[in-house]
Design a protein around this nucleic acid. Structure first.
Lengths: 313, 313
DNA sequence: GCGATTTACGCATTTCGTAAACATC
DNA sequence: GATGTTTACGAAATGCGTAAATCGC
């Protein structure tokens, strides 16, 4: 059994069982891949793929089990290299952060600024996606950290650490009637057309919950995955926006007015997700601590070993 | 990076950093090992061993980290082979049970009888040791299951599943004064010399606790790791024995009398320990269920994924 | 017939074992 | 000098790429 064979196997699965694509992705020849997979199947005494004549159509059940273990081994192989890097030069390496628009645009910039000043030699990558996507990336080792509010998928592989809580605000154009109202209520809000986050993004479920618990049916005319889009449509008078407080900046958003809505919706918790099987280099601990100062190295290590669902601090 | 190199590394560590011994254990040549380790160090860019001239004296900190990951990879390699076996022939394979004397002698025999009737082709091995030893074996993959009462060491690697609870009894020679007593108390018991389990074995700590909570200091004249030794010395009049109820058989132990002591000591829980990173073949699930019927395959899988400390049923 | 996988074959690299040199105790 | 590690070198095995054959849609 060779690590190469496992690499081939993993790539074939990633390429929807297409040997040729896998060969291309790995910069090698198809026959080589074919051969090594056969050897692996022979050694394990199991058919990994179901072949229809010469076409690979499916993974067998044992193949699935093998694939999972193989992927973990490959990740460990990466981890070994990381250990090497870590002790060679603690200042260089790479960090891939998978996150949503809201975090990337409003929460992360100051942290990232500090981080690249502290670690100028580290190649930092931001990868933007939906909560589901970023969970997948971290679980598969394509990214090191997931940062998002809301339903980060609960992979057993992932440890979720609560970072901070935040509340919402309502944004409206200047001279909007809601600005006159003494204390904002859900009922008055429900009288207007609403623009807010797409489901599955940025704590949207808390918004739904709040309305539902009062028996209200909000008239959501547009859902977006980011606050900038929401603000744009509020500005042109399409409706009132509900968004994260941190996404409103009185200076930059001069054409809009914000109303605090902390009392209307449950606060949401932004979490950071790490893979349990990933070797965590010191600068990764540092990054997490910059983002959430209560998460120091020791705390994180504890959480990795005892992965009970982490509650908000 | 080759799996061979990791195998070499792991074996060197196991052989107290003796290359030659490692080579012998792996049926290969010393120079080969030496070379491959150098290549590995070169590839990772890290010194794994500290050398005093040409003698290997210690593992470096990065070496330690590398060793741990390497061991997990090797276990995964074993797991791959197991998956192969599992789907090839679910009836054959091997099962190594690490356990203590008490379990091996009194609790396991009927289970094992059933198991080998059901799976005649499986090579079953019983490996006897102290709770510490058996934990180590399972954590390192040398054994598949640990079965013991009492302080099985709490490796994070190990999941402990409660199987059953049991109580103690007192054994004395016939016509012993304690047999006349209406209801046995710790105070009366403390007046006699006592023979019981060695510390760290078979729930011994519960016995100490009971006496201590009453401020009594039992006069323990002999500690043994198994009930047979205890009974032998009770028989020759050295003292009264405290042992597990299951270890007393009125028929076989004709020369002794037992007195129930369930009210004197906290019941102990016998647990079964499995390694979180071990691929569990179907017959292993079956074995566990034979031993503790409430632990079915689903329950065990749950516990492996959510490894909160399992409480007695 | 086109796309995809397997078989065949020769080259290049790597690995391993023996022998010898070298270092430490 | 004994034990233990590294260096040197030749033989065997293995992996890889090109070319060709085979198969399925």
């Amino acid at each position: 059994m060779k690590l190469q064979q496992l690499r081939y196997l993993s790539e074939i699965a990633r390429q929807q069982l297409n040997l040729s694509k896998a060969a291309e992705a790995l910069h090698t020849s198809q026959p080589g891949i074919s051969r090594q997979i056969q050897l692996l199947e022979q050694e394990l005494g199991v058919e990994i793929f179901i072949r229809n004549g010469k076409r690979i159509t499916k993974i067998t059940p044992p193949g699935q089990a093998i694939l999972e273990i193989a992927r973990r081994m490959l990740q460990d192989a990466d981890n070994l290299r990381r250990v090497g890097e870590e002790f060679n030069d603690k200042e260089s390496g790479s960090l891939v952060i998978a996150t949503t628009h809201t975090q990337a645009r409003y929460a992360l910039p100051p942290i990232i600024k500090r981080f690249i000043e502290r670690y100028p030699k580290i190649r930092l990558t931001l990868r933007q996606g939906s909560p589901t996507e970023i969970s997948t990336w971290v679980a598969s080792g394509e990214a090191d950290l997931a940062i998002a509010t809301e339903a980060i998928e609960l992979f057993d592989e992932l440890i979720m650490l609560p970072c901070y809580q935040w509340n919402r605000c309502i944004v409206v154009p200047p001279q909007h009637p809601l600005l006159e109202q003494e204390k904002l209520t859900l009922e008055s809000l429900a009288q207007y057309t609403i623009i807010t986050y797409d489901f599955a993004f940025t704590g949207r479920s808390k918004i739904n919950q709040a309305f539902e618990s009062r028996g209200l049916q909000p008239n959501v005319v547009l859902t977006a995955i980011d606050a900038d889009v929401i603000k744009t449509y509020v500005e042109i008078g399409l409706g009132v926006g509900i968004l994260a407080q941190m996404a409103f900046d009185p200076v930059r958003d001069k054409g809009l007015r914000a109303i605090d809505a902390a009392h209307l919706f449950e606060p949401s918790t932004t979490r950071i997700g790490i893979s349990r099987s990933c070797y965590i280099r010191s600068y990764i601990y540092d990054f997490i601590e910059m983002f959430a100062p209560h998460l120091n190295t020791e705390t994180i290590k504890q959480a990795l070993v005892h992965p009970q669902r982490q509650e908000p601090a």
